[in-house]
């Protein structure tokens, strides 16, 4: 078992969503650079998914440390 240092608690969450966010943004930028309601909807769903998972990991980390 590890001590609850920054390396054990929040650094993985930050690294995941910064490194993952760079990959995700590159994908979104390509879509943007390459008006149909269906495509617009999917564009928003993709953004939703990123923040949905960010929320899940933030909540689970907070819950593990506090409950």
């Amino acid at each position: 078992m590890h001590e609850l240092t920054f390396f054990r608690t929040w650094l993985p969450v930050i690294y995941l969503y910064v490194a993952g966010g760079i990959i995700f943004s590159a994908g979104m930028l390509i879509i943007y650079k390459s008006s149909r309601p269906m495509h617009k909807r999917w564009f928003y769903v993709l953004f939703f998914g990123y923040f949905y998972y960010l929320g899940i990991h933030t909540f689970l980390t907070y819950a593990a440390l506090n409950f």
């Binding site: 995700f24 994908g27 390509i30 495509h39 993709l46 998914g49 990123y50 949905y52």
Partner: peptide, 9 residues
């Protein structure tokens, strides 16, 4: 999820 934009579009 990070690679989904590349996959879907």
């Amino acid at each position: 999820w990070f690679f989904l934009p590349f996959f879907l579009f």
